[in-house]
């Protein structure tokens, strides 16, 4: 694909705008440039991949969680039963506990609807525990839990959750005596189930035939503090410009700099609606970018910063009258 060379006088329309067909052209082989660029990028990709490999973080399992932070597992289970975890109060698409992210008066998250219903206590704790066999204490605890009223369940679980938060290091063995019903037994059994490696299957196999839906395991993990601690240790936190980062020293997504920048400064960094606000702001900025040719001032920037004079410097050197 080439353009031909032709030295024609530049014609001007009556409006004073030069006729684009009047400018000289040069031969240029776009196919050749594409092939050269493809070959260079392919060679660079192979060399860099061979030299640096790629990020390969070990997948986090419930068993890892139970081994590394057993008290966090117990606290999370108690929190799920009490309905105080993030997922329990998240709102759509999991439940109706909150309206979620709003853009001014517009309840964007609520408009999405509850498309993946999750009852945190039942789906993330009670149902997986109900698959455990050979534990009479757990069977009795589950029977007691199921027979109790919702208010009684909340009272037991909230009391135990509060007691855990006051215990040294959140250690279940050092919790003050109290009326916690079957919650301690259930929480301890939950820790044992997580440590055995059986929790992943119990959480994921109950949703799809191929057990490939990781929604519930991920919700449970994110309700604890272990996942966030691991993410923050790798600079992946929202207030660490994490959207831009990859684990270790691998390059991340630097083109996300503007999107993640807003999360670092007020009012976004202190707002519960940061996701909706940042999205709205980026949509506004994108609209401004699209409309640049029509916005006085913005559309004049090329005249103030004439980069095109550098690119076409030979032309402007030979045609000094055309300088802005």
């Amino acid at each position: 694909m080439t353009a031909t060379t032709a030295a024609r006088p530049v014609r001007r329309r009556s409006s004073g705008t030069p006729d684009s067909h009047g400018f000289p052209t040069r031969p240029y082989d776009l196919v050749k440039e594409f092939v050269v660029a493809l070959v260079v990028v392919t060679i660079l990709t192979v060399i860099l991949a061979a030299a640096f490999s790629s990020p390969d973080e070990k997948a986090m399992t419930m068993s890892d969680w139970a081994a590394a932070a057993p008290n966090d597992v117990v606290a999370t289970a108690a929190g799920e039963l009490a309905g105080t975890t993030t997922s329990a109060g998240y709102g759509p698409p999991y439940n109706t506990a909150a309206d979620g992210q709003m853009l001014g008066p517009l309840p964007l998250q609520k408009w999405g609807g509850v498309r993946i219903p999750v009852d945190s206590a039942q789906d993330l704790v009670v149902t997986p525990l109900s698959h455990v066999t050979g534990n009479p204490d757990l069977t009795a605890a589950l029977a007691t839990w199921t027979a109790a009223s919702a208010d009684q369940q909340t009272t037991w679980a909230s009391a135990y959750s509060d007691a855990l938060s006051k215990a040294p290091d959140g250690d279940p063995k050092q919790v003050a005596t109290g009326d916690y019903g079957p919650v301690p037994t259930m929480s301890e059994a939950f820790l044992t189930l997580a440590g055995s490696g059986g929790l992943e299957g119990a959480l994921s196999s109950s949703t799809t035939f191929y057990a490939s839906d990781q929604t519930r395991p991920l919700l449970l993990l994110s309700d604890g503090s272990y996942l966030e601690d691991q993410a923050r240790a790798r600079h992946l936190g929202g207030d660490q410009w994490g959207m831009m980062n990859e684990t270790g020293n691998y390059p991340g997504q630097p083109w996300m700099w503007l999107y993640t920048f807003w999360y670092q400064i007020p009012p976004f960094s202190t707002s519960d609606n940061a996701d909706a606000l940042v999205w709205g702001l980026m949509m506004l900025l994108t609209l401004l970018l699209v409309l640049v040719p029509f916005i006085p001032g913005l559309r004049s920037i090329p005249r103030w910063i004439p980069v095109h004079h550098l690119i076409w410097r030979d032309w402007y050197r030979d045609h000094p009258r055309r300088r802005a």
Binding site: E246, N249, P251, G252, P254
Partner: peptide, 11 residues
């Protein structure tokens, strides 16, 4: 407020 990986900065 800036926090950027050395690799991203180099790129």
């Amino acid at each position: 407020v800036i926090q950027i990986s050395l690799t991203n900065a180099i790129i």
